[in-house]
Amino acid sequence: MTDLISPDYHLALYALWVSLQVVAGLLIADFVSGVLHWMQDRYGGPKWPIVGPLVRATIRHHKKPRRMITRSFMQRNAPTFFISALFLAAFAALGWINVMTLTGVIVGAFANEFHNWSHRKPSENGPVITWFQDKGLIIAPLEHARHHRDGKNSHFCAVTGWMNAPLERVRFWRRLEALIRVFAKERPRRDPTVRRRPVFA
């Protein structure tokens, strides 16, 4: 029976399967970028060991978002390269190397670069990057701008931005923070760049 199915059909099924794995990898990279971004923005302190420099960088970035575009390629991306290498090592140890995990690791490694591009003007990005942003294939400036509004406590995903809407719809970050408050007795760090709203009697 399988002999009656054309090679083109098998090729189309294989291409579909690979495409689905690529999309899944992009979704995973976007989600993981959101989790790491959320942790960096909401917890820890500037004087903490190890994570302190990341917290300070977050506060500086929230004060002056476009400052990051003046940093070198390695200054922006070295942390995510290191994290992606850890993920790759874990996937290799578990025997989970496939199109999905490789897509997630490789694209996720450049999460800060996509973030960087979302703070640049089209004239600075050039036509190719701007086209990808306009088509929604990578995070666009308008989508990432949602994170920098108000409390800077939403829309954390910064690779494609695809995960932002569904996560915000189910109040994912708020619910996660509520669980941490209950079980770990920890509250999110107050961002010094966010003005406190006046409380009226």
Rank of each mutant, 00 (worst) to 15 (best):
A15I: 13
V18F: 02
V18E: 02
L20W: 06
Q21R: 08
G25R: 01
L26W: 00
I28E: 03
I28P: 01
F31M: 09
V32I: 13
V32M: 10
S33V: 06
L36A: 11
H37D: 09
M39Q: 12
R42E: 03
G44I: 06
K47Y: 09
P49G: 10
I50P: 12
G52S: 10
P53D: 07
L54R: 02
V55N: 04
P65S: 01
R66I: 07
R67F: 11
M68D: 09
T70M: 01
R71C: 05
S72W: 03
F73M: 06
M74V: 15
Q75V: 08
Q75I: 08
F81Y: 13
F82E: 02
S84G: 10
L86D: 04
F87I: 08
L88R: 01
A89L: 14
G95R: 00
G95H: 04
G95L: 05
N98F: 07
V99T: 14
T103E: 04
G108S: 08
A109K: 00
F110Y: 06
N112L: 00
N112E: 07
H115Y: 01
H119S: 07
K121H: 14
P122R: 10
N125S: 13
N125C: 15
P127R: 05
P127M: 09
V128H: 08
I129Y: 04
I129A: 10
T130S: 15
T130P: 12
W131T: 15
W131M: 14
W131N: 04
F132W: 14
K135Y: 10
K135M: 10
P141I: 10
P141F: 07
P141A: 09
E143C: 08
H144W: 04
H147I: 03
D150H: 12
G151Q: 01
G151S: 01
F156I: 11
C157I: 03
